[in-house]
Amino acid sequence: MSAAHAMQSELPLLEVRDLTMRFGGLTAVDRLTFAAHSGAITALIGPNGAGKTTVFNCITGFYRPTSGAIVIERGDETYRLDRLAGHRIARDAGVARTFQNIRLFPNMTVLENLLVAQHARLMRASAFSLAGLLGLRRYRDAEEAGIALARSWLERLDLVQYADRDCGTLAYGLQRKIEIARAMCTQPALLCLDEPAAGLNPRETTELSRLIISIRDEFGIGILLIEHDMSLVMGISDRIVVLDHGARISEGTPAEVRSDPAVIRAYLGEDDTANGEGGR
């Protein structure tokens, strides 16, 4: 884990400041502040209903926060995610996400799913379809590059034999992996994983934690993670933010969070697997 710390840059990639989200009278997120860095895995944990998914939805543009700021620094550009149109958060600010209940395009093949993720780049290369319709070289090259990128992800995840199968026909565990590959094909600066281990068996979970770590180390991007599987969270996270009733009750390294009395009271006290299986 120390290698990851070395890669962590000083300036945060994502900054969430005083984020508040109300639905009618219910305050789902209450003045939440935290940061996530490039080259680091930041986990967002908390009991059910703590507001984790709401935070995700605010970051990825599905909800408009009631107040507060969400800022991404990407290259020289600064993006205010709380004001950006939903699709630009992915396209320009470089935030990719997966969903709690997988959202692949079920009637399209795995390869097609991975190509849709590269839409913005391929669209530019096809000159808004003109070059593509005429079959110009410049588009053909871009398409080859897109397929090569997709293939590299399929090879890494050992999915090449499923490339031409419809996603909807594949097993659940495979779909989870494909969704991560699809998110990575957008070449993001921040990858948001919403309960990636839900529904996976122990072997698949181990494989998943290896995958997440390899993404962090190889691409140096920031990873934001919501997860209930404490052994996974404690094993791979660089920093953990603990939420309860929409507010932050603790933040720190896995070791710090684990020994924080507030956390134990709110959450870990009821769940001793986290204490038992810390580390890898």
Binding site: G61, F105, L115, V116, L133, T186
Partner: peptide, 27 residues
């Protein structure tokens, strides 16, 4: 031809799942 281009795939993606399409940067 257009089905095989990015825009054609985007049409189908949007038909399949608009939310996922938006999360991938499609307008």
């Amino acid at each position: 031809r257009i089905r095989r281009l990015p825009v054609g795939r985007a049409w189908e993606a949007l038909r399949e799942d608009e939310i996922a399409s938006r999360a991938l940067g499609l307008n």
